[in-house]
Design a protein around this nucleic acid. Structure first.
Lengths: 210, 210
DNA sequence: CGCGTTGGATAGTAAAAATATCCAACCGGG
DNA sequence: CCCGGTTGGATATTTTTACTATCCAACGCG
């Protein structure tokens, strides 16, 4: 498959494909001569993943680049690869200075994770991310109790362990494992979000009586 | 409160506040003279909401503008206002032409909503949004069964009805109702997302045995 | 009365994600 | 064997979004 065919098959314009090649999101095709390269199914697949992460997940190109980089680094053990990829999916948030409020929120997060006996890296950026959200919610005057948080966390754990993680082929090829993880996190994550909004609309309609 | 104090209290630079004023995200202060205006608690509160929606929710300024606009439009009945605001929270996605695959996915979504007997507007953009996500998931080869979708939907409905909607003061002032809805949708939505990612990390660690 | 702040208008910037333009090398059909 | 069209590669330009910066005349407070 040449670049024009790859473009036609994926719906992505050629200049954009070239851009992804430059940025390392898409591996180079197999050079057959100085001005010709051959692309395969894997490229098409990767291209679809990129577009899904960009358009559905709204991930920055740089984050996708990080994910791709760990797949390509054969040195890295699988569990580390999955961890790094996972962290790349975090909201690219701004780091906050350590004010009082934030520190307290971080404490709550750490306590929550401890109580649930979850195995989360002590330095996981996800902890900070949650702390920052809790601060915002507090500032807006709709605080979530620790009890609610535990409840929500329990629901999420059920969702994840009963329905998501089983599908990830941890022992397959590196690329496949990461792909499953990323799709599970980003696309299923979005799907849940939309389902939740649909449920909200339905409940709202019910309460307002229509 | 003058603009400089509003800026100091919120941490938002004066030029940015002026920008939000121009864009209609923030209502004008009360003019006390040609070159002086007074801002109150409501402005500070609104400013915090704006920043939370921008930084945590990653909503485009234009969407926040739409939400603000419906609050300000006193003509609009409350239920319609909430609906409009809710739709403004949808991912600002591109509209897809009607290919075969998308049509089938949309059918699945409509059937799902019917079966669950949810009260969702037939033209709700959320339906399209979910359909597009399903298409992507299919294309990437990790399709979700109708059964799974029903299960996920049930979980979300429980979450929403048991814990979220009760907190919205449908009979309070317009502004407060919208604020609660938006905070519930966007900020709690993000919180769930992060909790889910934390659960994923924990499960992944457990499975990989560390 | 004068100096700093304000509101309002206009212009400019930064970052992210493409797109566009060029060019020489090449391939394959005639 | 030659020539129109495609390719890879490099470089430049555009678009969008969310800000920032600059000006300016009018205040208003000490």
């Amino acid at each position: 498959m040449r670049i024009s065919q790859l473009s036609a098959a994926s719906g992505v314009p050629i200049p954009t494909i070239k851009y992804y090649l430059r940025e390392g999101l898409l591996p180079q095709g197999e050079q057959t001569s100085a001005t010709r390269a051959e692309y395969g199914e894997a490229h098409l697949r990767r291209l679809r993943l990129i577009r899904a992460l960009l358009e559905v997940g709204r991930l920055p190109v740089a984050s996708i680049g990080k994910i791709v980089a760990v797949v390509e680094d054969e040195e890295m053990p699988v569990h580390e690869m999955l961890g790094t990829a996972h962290y790349a999916l975090a909201s690219p948030g701004e780091s906050r200075p350590d004010d009082e409020e934030h520190h307290a929120a971080r404490e709550r997060v750490d306590t929550l994770i401890d109580e649930l006996e979850w195995h989360v890296h002590p330095e996981a950026p996800t902890r900070e991310e949650l702390a920052q959200i809790l601060v915002r919610i507090d500032q807006l005057g709709m605080p979530a109790s620790d009890e609610s948080m535990r409840h929500y966390a329990g629901l999420m754990m059920r969702l994840v362990s009963e329905h998501e993680m089983g599908k990830i082929p941890f022992d397959g090829p590196r690329e496949t494992a990461v792909e499953s993880l990323v799709i599970g996190t980003v696309l299923y994550g979005k799907a849940f979000d939309v389902l939740r909004r649909l449920a909200q609309e339905s409940e709202s309609a019910r309460i307002l009586g229509r």
